Computed example of a mutant assay.
Amino acid sequence: MSDESGEPLTSNVRPATSALVTVRIIKSFPYRNVKNHILSPVNLQETTPKQLVEQVRTIINTTGGLRPYRNVEYDTLKIYTKAHGSKSMNLIINFENDDDWVLQRPGLEIDRSLKELGVENETELSLFKWDDYVAFKANPEEKW
């Protein structure tokens, strides 16, 4: 794929075996506590959502700058936006596409690769606690 100028799209520049993925670590929905962490390279053809969640949990527990994010039990991985796609109007989380874009949550563990699930280079993923998401979705009130 390429854009109108003939240049390849950034989502197609890197191979699926060496993709760049941004993980949005969400500590609090109401207070909009989010920290982006860029992972590269990620082998989308072999990595499952469960493996990626475990990898990011390890990063959170071993990286000094992520110390404030250690007190949440992250159990859910959801696509926030794909490269060159439209973003959600909500800056903290994408409420749409729960059936298709939630890749892992309690009671749902998909044993397929990230590539098979539609993740490509430069996809943004959200990592959060499912119960917090359900509560915020029911009452999306932001606090300051």
Rank of each mutant, 00 (worst) to 15 (best):
E4P: 02
P8V: 06
P8H: 09
P8E: 08
L9I: 03
L9E: 12
N12L: 09
R14Y: 12
A16W: 07
T17D: 06
A19R: 08
L20H: 10
L20D: 10
T22Q: 14
T22C: 11
V23C: 03
R24A: 12
R24N: 13
I26R: 11
K27R: 13
S28V: 12
R32W: 12
N33K: 15
V34F: 13
K35L: 09
I38W: 07
S40G: 05
S40K: 11
P41Q: 05
N43I: 12
N43Q: 11
L44V: 07
L44K: 01
Q45T: 14
E46P: 05
K50A: 15
K50N: 06
Q51P: 03
L52N: 02
E54F: 13
E54Q: 14
V56T: 02
V56G: 03
T58P: 01
T58G: 10
I59C: 07
N61I: 10
N61T: 14
G65E: 11
L66N: 04
P68L: 13
Y69M: 10
R70H: 00
N71A: 12
N71P: 10
Y74C: 09
Y74A: 04
T76N: 11
T76G: 08
L77H: 02
L77T: 04
L77C: 00
K78F: 02
K78R: 01
I79Y: 01
T81G: 01
K82S: 09
A83V: 11
H84E: 07
H84L: 09
K87E: 09
M89R: 05
N90Q: 05
N90M: 08
L91M: 10
L91N: 14
I92G: 06
N94K: 06
F95N: 10
E96V: 02
E96Y: 01
N97A: 06
D98C: 04
D99W: 03
D99R: 03
D100L: 13
Q104P: 02
R105W: 03
R105K: 15
E109R: 01
I110A: 00
D111Y: 07
S113W: 00
K115V: 03
E116C: 02
E116A: 07
E116N: 03
G118D: 04
V119F: 02
V119G: 02
E120G: 13
L125P: 01
K129S: 06
D131W: 15
F136T: 02
F136Y: 09
F136V: 06
A138Q: 11
N139F: 07
W144Q: 06
